[in-house]
Each structure stands twice: as structure tokens, then as C-alpha cells.
Design a protein around this nucleic acid. Structure first.
Lengths: 385, 385
DNA sequence: ACCTCCTTCTGTACCGGTACAGTAACCCCG
DNA sequence: CGGGGTTACTGTACCGGTACAGAAGGAGGT
């Protein structure tokens, strides 16, 4: 007698299979309902007359059994319509799913509309593909019953443009998942990938100063009253935005009397135009504007055109990111390039490394990658006239 | 005595907890290694002095236990650093993960670069968010050890711009996952979402005929020699491409002697330019071109500009999709609009419906959605001169 | 002939939850 | 004061796999 897992109480056992060729196919203990019962490893095992474990090995560890037997098992599986080990069960038993998450605070739509985000994600997808890991898109929504960050099985996650304080991010941490921060304030024990936002911003500011500009507008993101320029490097939303502002102020001087700031909420085109108006409608209109992103800069270019302000004759505009559109708008946008594809590749590599580390129990210190930025001068900036 | 699941052999049991307040925290049976042992439902149960089931209910079915006890349990969980039921285990026990897949044949990068794809995916993401389902991106890659389509746990999947014959698609079917076809030849038993490609193509062709064009070029996708126009409606890759061609031929007449066809491989900009050259370099250059996508049409516009061919003066160009860029290129591209956002919403809705159906065992017939298309006339088409 | 090693397969004990069918205590009612 | 219905919690039996430690049998060495 050998015990066999069945739907019956444990005391019920089945006589051992002899391994002899079977006649008619056993139709899978059909007390599961009128539909065909679920085919599991056990079904195949019974059919072929081997142990469940051997069938498992046939799929997951081919070198653990003889080739002919494996063939027989695979054939039986095919015949019974068994595709392979159930992913959910395997995930539980092995402790690893084949998927990693990417977390956004913004609506997920942002992940597909913003060219900087899509470039980044595309690179991740490409980099992850050969490892066999799939990419799961996570939102920080935590209102519903289901909170992806807490309830989706995954092997690790990328935190990208996330709200630091969201409950979802907290879940991710508390689950002790291998994480990688992208464009976030680095933490000692968590690998991170960042670009040299501050350095790039400095270059942008120096560029304008070199052209003679002194009344320079700064277009910030999500800095609401009562906060002003002094607090902005702290309260602006997003590590990148804060670093960029810091970089500008490094060069311009934090107290520069002639700095004019405006802040927009969010990253959509409407918000960009709104922020642009705040700067361009003023009587003491700046002669140049530094924008926290290209998307924001596009708003400035557009509003300038509407107001009949010549760029770069009357107004210089500098963006950030080198969005693919930056080279295509007229005039071409001077901007600070970051290599989003490289960022994506680095992030994916850091994540797979972190997952490996967690799996093997290795305790290498967390790596912190800082990618360079580069000022790209196009037609939207010119000398003060 | 009540049996308690421990790491010890089954015969070992533990005396029942009395429910009295506990002294020092039991440090989680630390024979798991030097690091803190994993915190599970049982850990919390032992701590609070209730059954594992009650702890499970505290998280998953709040109305199954009294509020004060639930509070105590949640507090203990918090204290022990327990985030919530393990997603993998829950997936196995409940038979549902919180994620659905979207399958691409193209490199995943395509999912993030093609504006038609991103619009579609963004809409899906938006539509799915309130349901709590996460989106997992799947490739049809099946070379590695891990095949996402077979090895990733999910509740259902969308098949989008897929290679019909790929092994990955087959896996998805054989797993009996709830599926929805998008832009695929509909199958009776599987819900599908399509747009009226054929009708739209007819409108495009009629438009050109009405403008007097007779020598019309057709830019196809992935129709390699030895196949010609006659076979193209069958062999062209992608349901949409085939339907569009059929629609053109409906109006132009399949044997129209003056039709000129060219085919490009793939959907990238280079391929588009290459396909465009095939048409425009000929001595019997067509006076108008119907393209299977806007992306291809952009290639035609670009090459025409390079060759000094005036559009629409010497050449009319019609695209397909109404890619967001179609309105922005010069001259504005006449095209057949499909509402990709609506397609995404419909696909997401169909998938959640299919998943519900599978869950409840309901057997409603599969729905087949067909969304309208609309000819959008811009500046790239004009009368034959 | 005996011992060792390797290959191939098996059995048990998990992975960490949930479903479902109890059971005990309490409440209300006639 | 017994019966019927709640409410609150418990026990058992799974979900469908994998890890790991045997066990059986044959090959090879001495």
C-alpha cells in the first residue's frame, strides 16, 4: 500500500499502481462536478504509474529521471491536457513567482503616455525579457479591497516616481521584498539608480548665466503655498525635482533677488501651460526659464508662442530630460539629457541582482548607481538681448 | 490538546493557548536560521491565542469575528511585522491571483513606443485600476527556461497583436485561462474586441477613388514573396492588416490592374521608410497610397519629402489608426480613426467579465465587440491632378 | 564476494493560506 | 424552560506543488 492524495478522507488509500500499461484512461476522479476535474501532477502520476514527485521532476528537473520515463510522462501530460506545474502552487512551494513589479504613484496611464516613462519602462522590459521575469504594473492606489502592493505575488519591485509617503510603498517595504529605488532619495540599505539631476541642473543654470540672463524664472512642480523658494528643495514632490532645483540654486544663488518661481501641479499638458502662464503673464517677465521637465518646457514654448514672445529672442527656455519630442519642437528645446534607456537597464539589473542576493542570502552592500547627465543646447536658448 | 502546525513531526503537538495575556513575545520559533523566522498567520494566532483561521478572517473577512478581537489581532500583526496574508499562498488557496496578463508578440518595447499600443494599454490600465487587478506584461518568448505564458500566475489574459501560432499563445489556451482576443480573428467561444478595420479600409479606398485616383499603391505588412496580392489577405501578419487589405480590395476590385503593392517587415520607422521606397521609387509611381498603419504612412510622407514629391499635389497618402502624431505631421495625415482608448476599455471590461464568468461558472456565450472606425480627412489627400 | 558509489525513483513534510462544516455560548421568544 | 436562531470561533481538509532524505538496484573496484 502506498498512500495517495485523494479527495477522500486520509484513511482511504489506494492500492499501488503496478506500472503495467493501463487500459482506458482514468477520467480523473470526476467527483469535482460535471466538468472535467482539474489535471494535476497526481493525475499524471496515477496515469503513468509513478510518484507525483517523479512527474514534478519530469517538468522541473529533467536530469533527475531517465529520458524514456520522462518521455512517457510528458506524453501522458500532453494527452491529459496538462500544461505544466500550476504557477500559483509552484510560487508557494518555491518561494518565487516569475514576476517583478514596477510601482507608480501617478495613474498608470502616465506609464504609457509620458515619453520619459515609456522609454524607461521599455528598457526595463527589454532587459528583463532574457531573464524570464515578467513585469507587473503596480499602482499606489490603496482605497479598494485589493491593494496591489500588498496583494500581488512578486519577487521584487522597482519604485519609480513614487510618493514616498504612500501606504502602498510602505507595504512593499514591510513585505521585505527586494526593492530598487529609481529617482528616489537613496537609502543606505536599498539599491538605487539615479541620474545626476543636480549636476545637470547646474549646467543648465550656468548656460543661462553665461548667456547673460539674470532675471531667470524657475518652473517647479507641486510646490504649493505657503511654501516658497526657500522650502522648495525640501517640499517639492519627487527626488528628481528637488535635486534639479538644488542644482539651479547652486549656481544662481539661493537668495538671488531676481529669481521668479512658479509651480504647477502634476505633469499634464494643461498643468504645464498653467505653470507657464504664471511666469509669462507677469510684468517683470523673466528673460529665461528653467523648467523641471521637458513636458513643462513645452508648455512654456506653447504659451510663449500664443503671447507672441519670441524664443529665443525674448525668452530662453531650458527643459530637462531630453524627451524625444525636445528635438522635434520648434524651436528645438535646449535641455538636460538623461539616458532613460540606460536608467531602465541599470534598474532592471539592480533588481535582478537584489533578487539573487535575497535568494542566496548573500549580504553584499546595496549599490547606488548615479548616471551622468548632459546639457544639450538647441535653439530655445540664446544670449540676452 | 489541539494540533498546531509546526516545523516538528506531526506527532508533536502543543498545549492549547489559554487566551491569557502573554508575557514576552515568542520570538517566532527561530530554528529557521539566525534571521527572524517568517511571520505567518500561525505566528499571530499563537501570539494572540486564537486559531489560525480566526487570524485569516481578521484580514480577509472582517465580519466573521468581533471587532475587539480583530483589533487585538491586527495589533499583534503590526507588532510582529506581519503585513497580510502571503499573496502566493492566498493565490493557491483561493484560486485567484490579483493580476491579469497582456500578451504581445512583438518585443515588449513595442508596448511602450508605439503610440497606438500605449493608448490601448493606458486605457486598459485605467479601466483595470478600480477593480484592483494589476497588469502583467507578457512576451511570447519561449526560448528560455521560464515561459511567462506558462509560468506566471494570473487570472486571465488579453491577447493583443499576437502571433497566432506562437507556442506561448498555445500555452495560454491550454491553461484554460479566461482570455480575450483583441485585434484577432474571433473564435466562437472566446470573447473578442475588434474594430471595423474592413469598413474603415473601404471608406479610405472610396475616398481615394472619389478623388479620381486609379493608380493606387498598397503598403502592406509582412507579406513576403512568393506571396502576392492574391494571397495577402490570408498571409499578411495580423488580423487587422488582413482586414484592412480586404476592405481596400472590396472597393478597388481585387484584380484592378493598376494596383501596386509593397510590403514591409515589422513596424519600426526604418521598415516604414523601406516599404515607402518600394512604392515611390518605381517608374509607374502610384498617385495615391493606402497604408496599413499611420506609422507606415509616416514613412511614406518622409520619403516623399526626401524625393521632392509634393503631398497631396503629386501623391495622396492615407494611413490607418489615427495615431496622435497623424494630426501633427505636415501635411496632416488623412487616416482611418480607431478609438484605441475605447478598445482598451472594452478589452478590460470583457476580460473582467470573462474572469467573473469563469469564477461563477456562468455560461453566457462569448461576446464579440466591434468598434466603429471613421475616416478623418486631413491634408495628405487631394484630387488627382 | 563484498563494499561503495551512482542513478533513478519514492515518501514525507512541508510552503502559507482558505473553505466549509462544525460547536459552544448567548439571545430572544412563546 | 425548551427550542430555534445568531454570533463568534475552531478543526480539518484541502489548494498543487517542491525540498530533501531515503531506498532499491545495478555498475565498478579490489
Amino acid at each position: 500500500m502506498k498512500p495517495v492524495r485523494t479527495g477522500l478522507p486520509l484513511s482511504a488509500t489506494k492500492p499501488a499502481r503496478t506500472g503495467l500499461p493501463l487500459g482506458a484512461a482514468e477520467p480523473g476522479r470526476s467527483y469535482g462536478g460535471p466538468v472535467a476535474a482539474r489535471v494535476t501532477l497526481q493525475t499524471i502520476a496515477d496515469r503513468v504509474g509513478v510518484s507525483r514527485m517523479t512527474v514534478s521532476n519530469a517538468f522541473s528537473k529533467p536530469d533527475q529521471l531517465s529520458a524514456p520515463l520522462r518521455e512517457r510522462i510528458l506524453a501522458a501530460a500532453q494527452e491529459l491536457g496538462y500544461v505544466g506545474p500550476d504557477p500559483a502552487a509552484r510560487a508557494l512551494a518555491k518561494g518565487s513567482t516569475g514576476a517583478v513589479g514596477v510601482m507608480f504613484t501617478h495613474s498608470l496611464r502616465f506609464a504609457f503616455t509620458d515619453l520619459v516613462a515609456t522609454g524607461f519602462l521599455g528598457a526595463i522590459a527589454d532587459e528583463l525579457a532574457p531573464t524570464g521575469l515578467s513585469l507587473t504594473l503596480l499602482t499606489s492606489a490603496d482605497d479598494g479591497e485589493i491593494v496591489p502592493a500588498r496583494d500581488v505575488a512578486m519577487d521584487g519591485a522597482l519604485l519609480y516616481s513614487c510618493d514616498w509617503t504612500s501606504r502602498a510603498v510602505d507595504f512593499l517595504h514591510r513585505r521585505r521584498l527586494p526593492l530598487v529605488y529609481v529617482d528616489q532619495d537613496p537609502a543606505d540599505d536599498i539599491p538605487s539608480v539615479n541620474v545626476d539631476d543636480r549636476g545637470g541642473a547646474r549646467a543648465a543654470a550656468r548656460h543661462l548665466l553665461g548667456l547673460g540672463h539674470r532675471r531667470i524664472g524657475l518652473l517647479l512642480s507641486s510646490v504649493r503655498p505657503p511654501y516658497g523658494l526657500r522650502d522648495a528643495p525640501v517640499v517639492a514632490q519627487g527626488h528628481a525635482a528637488r535635486q534639479r532645483l538644488r542644482g539651479w540654486l547652486d549656481e544662481l544663488g539661493p537668495a538671488a533677488a531676481e529669481l521668479i518661481t512658479a509651480s504647477q501641479d502634476g505633469t499634464g499638458p494643461e498643468q504645464a501651460r498653467w505653470g507657464a502662464r504664471l511666469l509669462l503673464d507677469r510684468p517683470d517677465r523673466p528673460t529665461a526659464v528653467l523648467c523641471f521637465s521637458d513636458a513643462a518646457a513645452f508648455g512654456v514654448l506653447q504659451v510663449a508662442a500664443e503671447l507672441g514672445i519670441d524664443v529665443p529672442g525674448e525668452l530662453s527656455v531650458v527643459g530637462f530630460d531630453d524627451n524625444p519630442l525636445a528635438a522635434q519642437v520648434r524651436p528645438g528645446l535646449t535641455t538636460v539629457r538623461q539616458d532613460v534607456a540606460a536608467k531602465g537597464r541599470a534598474a532592471a539589473a539592480a533588481l535582478t541582482a537584489a533578487i539573487d542576493r535575497a535568494r542566496t542570502g548573500a549580504t553584499a552592500p546595496a549599490e547606488h548607481v548615479l548616471l551622468p547627465t548632459e546639457l544639450v543646447i538647441r535653439e530655445s536658448t540664446g544670449p540676452l538681448t
